[in-house]
Design a protein around this nucleic acid. Structure first.
Lengths: 232, 232
DNA sequence: CGGGTTGTTGATACCGCTCAAACACTGTGG
DNA sequence: CCACAGTGTTTGAGCGGTATCAACAACCCG
């Protein structure tokens, strides 16, 4: 009972479960499973049967698609409180991408087959999921627009701005640190370029005092300048 | 009554209204408005208040985003039976893009404010909308992957394949015609390139007997060859 | 017919990828 | 505690795919 209560309060604040009654929340929690994932380990893999869907409780994931040629493209990053792997809800039988832990993570797991029951029990779930997917669709269109019309430098600048927006942590010196390990390769896969070009850009920007970076750590020291670079 | 019955049968087959009862369908139709749109005319415009949402009954639309620099990017094409402009359902107050008629079109129009009521009345609507948006999200990710990793020729080939899939009409000679007017510029805006490059590609392909084209009309004469080009 | 739209084609420039090599940091095990 | 391997990062040189610039041709409609 105590643990049940704890769980309920844990997910109470998450968007997906907004406006659900206590009883229904309990019903949803009754079948949940908790799983921890080590860095580099997948939660689910591209092409696998979409038997489960997930909510990230703690940690950080990246969702990547792998092309036939073996290149990776980062689809998105998952932050705590977000649902992911809801392929079944959008009428897919297989996961279209791989979700992999960037840092040690804790995920809640449900059987996909329960999605229908949950929605029947509480239609607001579909409503909330629709909003979540809609937001992602917009972000996807933004990226398409950038990939179609902007040069690499501006795309990378935009990507960094979005990263500090979503996962930024203010540092003592006024800079904003991206709060999870991130390589040049990762940024390249987010922006459709190569790690070499990203490295050159970051080096140049570091010289101008716009960013500060170390191995797998990037902080923005002058957000305004970066925004100007993004504007072109 | 007769006209009401007619309307009901008209939209009965559309995905969004799948699994709705006759009465609820009537309730939804009670407040609908019909509007015709001339080629080149917008149904709604980027940035405008999202007061209405739509279903395309007849014709053909394209949805475009305009960048600050004035360049256009084609977000998607709308075919009969599809909903569009559902910004409010994904928690936006303004349209993120412009929807413009390519051919003379007939659209059904509802007030955005009714979306909530409709969903309350018939939760399956949210479910169906979720599926529709999910499909678009996947297509968006496909385009991101292509823009990130493929060269122009393959992207254009993929775009044509998708177009004949969605809007292809078999011709007598075995070729497949894209069933609406389409310029080089349009294809360029769909694939993140320039009309010049598209023109060169189509010329080359026409020489190889892969496509046949006239002013604003493009037909694929050898789908297999085109698929091979898309594969790279 | 004349003006606007659409399409073709050539010449040139350049952004950013590819290829290549070396360097830096981190964790591990002897 | 140091050697070493693995991963991540930097930087240079060269080239190629495409955008850009430019001019013209074809087509359509009023």
């Amino acid at each position: 009972m105590a643990s049940r209560k704890l769980d309920r309060s844990l997910i109470r604040g998450f968007d997906l479960f907004r406006d659900m009654t206590e009883e229904n929340l309990d019903a949803v929690l009754a079948t949940v499973q908790v799983r921890t994932v080590e860095p580099g380990e997948p939660v689910f893999s591209q092409g696998a049967s979409a038997d489960e869907f997930f909510l990230l409780l703690h940690g950080h994931l990246k969702v990547v698609q792998i092309t036939p040629a073996g290149e990776q493209v980062v689809v998105r990053h998952v932050l705590p409180g977000e649902v992911f792997g809801i392929a079944k809800a959008i009428r897919r039988t297989n996961y279209p991408a791989t979700a992999e832990a960037v840092t040690e993570s804790i995920v809640l797991v449900w059987m996909s087959s329960q999605w229908q029951d949950f929605v029947a029990l509480n239609p607001v779930l579909a409503f909330n999921a629709l909003e979540a997917v809609g937001e992602r669709l917009q972000e996807a269109h933004t990226r398409i627009r950038e990939l179609s019309t902007e040069e690499v430098e501006r795309r990378v600048a935009h990507a960094l701005l979005r990263l500090i927006q979503r996962a930024g942590r203010k540092e003592g010196d006024g800079s904003i640190l991206i709060d999870f390990p991130l390589t040049r390769q990762d940024i390249a896969e987010m922006t459709g370029t190569t790690l070499h070009t990203v490295s050159r850009l970051l080096s140049a920007w570091e010289g101008q005092g716009v960013v500060r970076s170390a191995r797998r750590r990037i902080a923005v020291t002058d957000e305004n300048r970066l925004a100007a670079l993004a504007r072109g």
